[in-house]
Design a binder for these strands. Sequence first.
DNA 1: ATGAAAGCGCTAACAG
DNA 2: CTGTTAGCGCTTTCAT
Lengths: 356, 356
Amino acid sequence: LKAIKARNRNISIKDIAEKAQVSIGPVDKVLHNRGGVSETTKARILKAIEELNYKPNVLASRLKSNKEYTICVLIPGANVGIPFWSQYIKGFEDAEDELSQFGIYIEIFYFDQNSEESFRAQIDAVFESNCDGIFMVPVFAEQTNRLLGICDERRIPAIFFNTEFPVKGNLSFIGQNSFESGFLAADLLSKCIPESSSILLANLVREADNHMHFQERENGFRSFFEQQTELAGIKVLKYENKSGDDHAIKQDLLKIIGEENVKSIFCTNGTNKVAQIVCEQSMKGLRLIGYDLIDENIDYLNKGVIDFLISQQPYTQAFQGIKLFYQFLILKQPITETQYLPIDIVMKSNLKYYGK
Amino acid sequence: LKAIKARNRNISIKDIAEKAQVSIGPVDKVLHNRGGVSETTKARILKAIEELNYKPNVLASRLKSNKEYTICVLIPGANVGIPFWSQYIKGFEDAEDELSQFGIYIEIFYFDQNSEESFRAQIDAVFESNCDGIFMVPVFAEQTNRLLGICDERRIPAIFFNTEFPVKGNLSFIGQNSFESGFLAADLLSKCIPESSSILLANLVREADNHMHFQERENGFRSFFEQQTELAGIKVLKYENKSGDDHAIKQDLLKIIGEENVKSIFCTNGTNKVAQIVCEQSMKGLRLIGYDLIDENIDYLNKGVIDFLISQQPYTQAFQGIKLFYQFLILKQPITETQYLPIDIVMKSNLKYYGK
DNA sequence: ATGAAAGCGCTAACAG
DNA sequence: CTGTTAGCGCTTTCAT
């Protein structure tokens, strides 16, 4: 990789200054848009920067400036201690470990996933701290929009993770493409079930949060079967119950499974609930696929009740997400657009590699 | 994550010098074991370092010393251009991109996978360049051992990737646990096939390289079925042919598939060959699982001939592997032991996330 | 064996 | 508006 090596020649601000026939003072000002430089010299300096292909030395810059950047993380906190969420924390810790040498620090703000008021309050708390970037799960739309307004004003970059949010503007999202994950689930299930059987699509949301990605998972799932004409024998049934009434859910599920030829279940959420019911009845040969490596799901995976779990890669979301801020704040690179992570299929046999 | 923040206090060599009542000269010498310091002052300095919990500032160190480290990569080169191998190159490029600011550069040496002589010659070439670390695929055992001897003498760290190599000593391996990948393949297949059917395990190695991991894949695969008493109806047949005679292989395979109740095939290698045969005969409902995202396999995956591919994560092997050298050479952390990467299941529907 | 001093490339305050 | 200067923390050379 010699090319890269050659590229990193030691072109310093001194070289630019020399070429532009000024001292390093104005050069630095131009580099940081700090003003106070005449148009003509500015032009000369910019030309020199361009021609010499100057790359700032991040290390030296960092060494001198000692500036500290705080990234505020806004994340549901009711679930602390659950592996799915603690994987995020692990990611934040590792990212800070690596980036603290560049002055990047992370401050975590927890909000109650079911309380818009709590979300609002934590947003306020974030803005009261001086923060140089916000990395968050945009649960409530209205408050998220308010936040974006303030970010815009104060020129604070915000990046979303876990949950997509429909916005225009120079924002970024890091997480899973829900549609594709549903599509993948369908692809996978289609290989594990009889040519003529029913799949039950279960949706048991009851939280007050953004349901968009549950719907997208379903859309992706259905889309797969619509594309495959040879799978015409497969029937997709849907069961939705947002009441939170576990008893009723159980009754309904058992009824459907008993009456229809259900050989598999796809849970867009609430996998653990379905798993519990399936487990109690010890139904053999029923394929079950769902989302998220939470403790309960992991148990059922190990017991063989759940066949597949789709991971959202919380660790990677956190780690990579914070690195985006490094790239923006330190390396001055533009923030990349939406960044979908690989969709991993987790089974009992490769579980250990996916945290916990 | 305030704890981490607090930890990174600016304790500098100046602080140590002050506490130990010397100037910074001897402190630096002690820090780098460069000798020339009296025992008594050395003790005082070490005590101060300990008590103040001194962490060297990598940035400043790097800024001053300007030392360059070259990591030599020793990799089979006959396969350049094949996506599987080009993913490695991508990983090396990205790693160098990130680490060149610390003076870490990569030099790649290609050898012919089928020529021990070429391997030997490239090892010599590596040692002729001044190299500060070796990252390699240990294809030929004898020459690898010779290399290890020289590394030991010259205190050059060597890390293996892709292929495991049985060694004692402070070396590291980064790659896939072959046994577990076979086990996973079995777990996955077991969910996709009739309760009573045969699985064909195909092994078509003909290269002169280290076959250990093909065997391990098989061992893992068999191990799964030995553990599952409820899968007693599954029969594992094995077909091995190292002749390279494609015609004979085809004849044999078709015969076995025709005579036995083969509903699935697990390829420990040569997935593309099997796929080709299966494709020509357009056998419906035959599940095919194998390794490596090479072009041909990807084609067959897209056509639906191959159902699953297990990725060895070449990009990650390369990227993480080079980072190990950063941790060792720059951060002075000990090299970690064997590091197995997640075993990912790649299907048509999530292929795009796994390179290409 | 120890200390003093120069300087890596950059920032930022200050003088002119 | 431009130039000078003092370091950031560390390495290394050179006196002492």
